[in-house]
């Protein structure tokens, strides 16, 4: 029975181009760059950047999000090419670095009242969530497209990572527009955006990439 099946598979053989991690990563980053450009075009860029005097928090926030987005995107793309013994954990350290923001916000909130009323103005927070998640969805779509070409063997973990990486890159794109530098604002709304994207990724992505 296997011989017949092997003959059938051999008859069906066509040349394939092996997937390459750098191509998958390039697809993810180009999609992120495209959406970041759209954020700048339609929402506008931060005033301090335009004036050439960006606040240090812009770099800290954007850097942490980019680091998290890049390392977890690498892990996602690497998952399209399975192998026993595969274990890229670089994103864990980036996640710890990013968690410094909500952790700092929580500690500071216990010491003093939040210094920026923006965190209580839901309009800005909702805008931050909505745009970050919208951009994240586009990036996640590119990653899912790539994963479907590959053979991910841990769908649940892949789902978490797709959500987290796309959410982080989406939030990084939105941070080009976001005028707030408050640690409370960042600790609350940016963390929520990444966390919600990660949860949605875990819930939605596995069923899209099973094979």
């Amino acid at each position: 029975m296997s011989d017949k099946m092997i003959d059938r598979l051999v008859d069906d053989l066509t040349p394939v181009k092996p997937l390459r991690i750098r191509d998958g990563l390039a697809l993810t980053l180009m999609t992120a760059a495209l959406f970041a450009a759209l954020v700048v075009v339609f929402a506008g860029i931060r005033g301090d950047i335009l004036m050439g005097i960006p606040d240090p928090m812009f770099f800290l926030r954007g850097g942490a999000l980019l680091l998290l987005g890049l390392t977890s995107s690498y892990a996602v793309i690497a998952m399209s090419q399975p192998a026993v013994g595969n274990s890229f954990k670089g994103w864990v350290w980036a996640l710890f670095a990013a968690l410094l923001f909500p952790a700092t916000a929580a500690v500071m909130a216990m010491i003093a009242a939040p210094d920026n009323m923006a965190i209580f103005v839901s309009r800005y927070g909702v805008e931050c969530l909505a745009i970050s998640m919208l951009v994240g969805t586009g990036i996640a779509a590119a990653q899912v497209f790539w994963l479907r070409r590959g053979a991910p063997v841990a769908p649940d973990r892949t789902g978490w990572l797709v959500g987290m990486s796309s959410g982080a890159l989406g939030a990084a794109a939105y941070s080009l527009h976001c005028p707030f530098n408050s640690i409370f604002y960042i600790g609350l709304w940016y963390s929520l955006a990444v966390a919600i994207c990660a949860i949605l990724g875990r819930l939605i992505v596995p069923r899209l990439i099973r094979w």
């Binding site: 394939v16 181009k17 092996p18 997937l19 399209s80 399975p82 094979w211």
Partner: peptide, 18 residues
């Protein structure tokens, strides 16, 4: 899923994962 095999890496760990 034969395109998911990276020719630069060992074959059996890939087969074992699948």
């Amino acid at each position: 899923k034969r395109a998911s095999y990276d020719p630069a890496r060992a074959f059996l760990p890939w087969l074992a994962a699948i």
